[in-house]
C-alpha cells in the first residue's frame, strides 16, 4: 500500500513536470493539440459520407465507427500523454540514455516511460471525449464504462509500443518494428473486425491486439455489458507484464553512453 502510494505520488509529480515542460511553449502545445483534433475530425467526415452511401460496413453503423474512433483516439492519446517516452524508448536505449533512470529508486520501465509527455497526443486524448459527447444514448454509466475501457486500452497500447521499442536492447534499433506495429494497431482497430478473414482474427488477440483496444470495448459499450471489463483489464495486465519482462531482460545488455544530454 505504501509502495502504491509512493508510485502514485511519483506519477503525479512526473505528470505535473511534463505538463509544465510542454506548456513552456504554449503556442506550440495548443497548435499541436487542436491540429490533431482537426486531423481526426476529417476522418469522421469521410466515414459519414461513406456510411451514408453504403448504409453500413461489416456490421458497423456510423455510431459504432465513431465509438471505435473515440476509444482508440483517447487510449492512444492517454498512452502518449502519460507515458510520452513510449515511442522514444528505442532511441533512449540506443543512445545509452537510461543512466539517470537506473540511478533512481523507481521501477526503470515506468520511470523512463513517464518522464515525458507528447504534446500532439493531448489532441487525440481530448478528441475521444468530444466524439463520445455526440454519441446517441450517452449516459453517465456509459461515460464511466468508456473511461475504464480507455484506461485498459491505453495500457495495451503502452505495453505493445514499449515492448517493440525494448527490442532495441537485442537488435540495436527497433524503431522500424515499432512503427510497423503502430500502423497495424491503428489500421486494424479502426475497421470492423468482421471485414477481416475469420482465419486471421486470432492476430487481434495476440500479436496486434486490436481486439482488446477496440473490438472488446465496442461489444461492452454497445450492450452496456460490464462483464467484458475484467477481460479488457486482464488482457492489459498480461501485456504490461510481458512488456516489463522483455525490458528487464534487455536491461542486462544495456551499454550506457557518453552523449551529452538533458531532460526536456
Amino acid at each position: 500500500m505504501k509502495t502504491l502510494k509512493a508510485y502514485l505520488r511519483f506519477l503525479a509529480a512526473a505528470f505535473a513536470v511534463n505538463v509544465k515542460s510542454v506548456v513552456e511553449y504554449r503556442a506550440n502545445f495548443l497548435a499541436q493539440t487542436f491540429g490533431m483534433m482537426l486531423n481526426n475530425a476529417a476522418f469522421a467526415v469521410f466515414w459519414k459520407v461513406l456510411l451514408d452511401r453504403t448504409g453500413g460496413l461489416g456490421g458497423y453503423g456510423f455510431a459504432d465507427v465513431m465509438f471505435v474512433w473515440a476509444i482508440v483516439s483517447t487510449s492512444f492519446g492517454l498512452a502518449h500523454v502519460v507515458f510520452g517516452n513510449v515511442r522514444g524508448l528505442s532511441e533512449i536505449i540506443r543512445e545509452g540514455d537510461l543512466d539517470a533512470y537506473l540511478l533512481q529508486p523507481k521501477d526503470v520501465w515506468l520511470n523512463v516511460l513517464a518522464s515525458r509527455t507528447e504534446p500532439s497526443a493531448w489532441g487525440d486524448f481530448a478528441y475521444g471525449f468530444v466524439v463520445l459527447a455526440f454519441l446517441p444514448g450517452i449516459s453517465p454509466e456509459r461515460v464511466a464504462l468508456f473511461c475504464i475501457l480507455a484506461l485498459a486500452a491505453a495500457a495495451v497500447f503502452t505495453a505493445c509500443f514499449a515492448l517493440m521499442e525494448s527490442l532495441a536492447f537485442f537488435m540495436g534499433d527497433s524503431t522500424a518494428l515499432s512503427g510497423a506495429l503502430t500502423e497495424f494497431l491503428l489500421s486494424f482497430s479502426l475497421y470492423p473486425e468482421t471485414v477481416f478473414d475469420p482465419g486471421m482474427r486470432w492476430i487481434f488477440y495476440t500479436i496486434v491486439p486490436s481486439g482488446f483496444i477496440a473490438f472488446v470495448p465496442l461489444a461492452a459499450f454497445r450492450s452496456l455489458d460490464w462483464r467484458l471489463v475484467p477481460i479488457a483489464i486482464g488482457a492489459a495486465a498480461a501485456y504490461v507484464a510481458l512488456s516489463r519482462a522483455v525490458f528487464n531482460a534487455g536491461l542486462r545488455r544495456y551499454e550506457s553512453g557518453n552523449k551529452i544530454g538533458t531532460k526536456v
Binding site: A6, F10, A13, A16, N111, K259, T262, K263, V264
Partner: peptide
C-alpha cells in the same frame, strides 16, 4: 548514493530547478 555526471543532466531543461527538486522528492519518497 548520489551521482553527478558532468555531461548528463538530471534537471529538466525547460523548467526551473525547483520543479525538478519536487519531482526528485517524489522519486526518493
Amino acid at each position: 548514493i548520489g551521482a553527478v555526471f558532468g555531461q548528463k543532466s538530471q534537471l529538466w531543461f525547460h523548467l526551473p530547478p525547483a520543479d525538478s527538486f519536487r519531482l526528485l522528492g517524489a522519486v526518493y519518497e
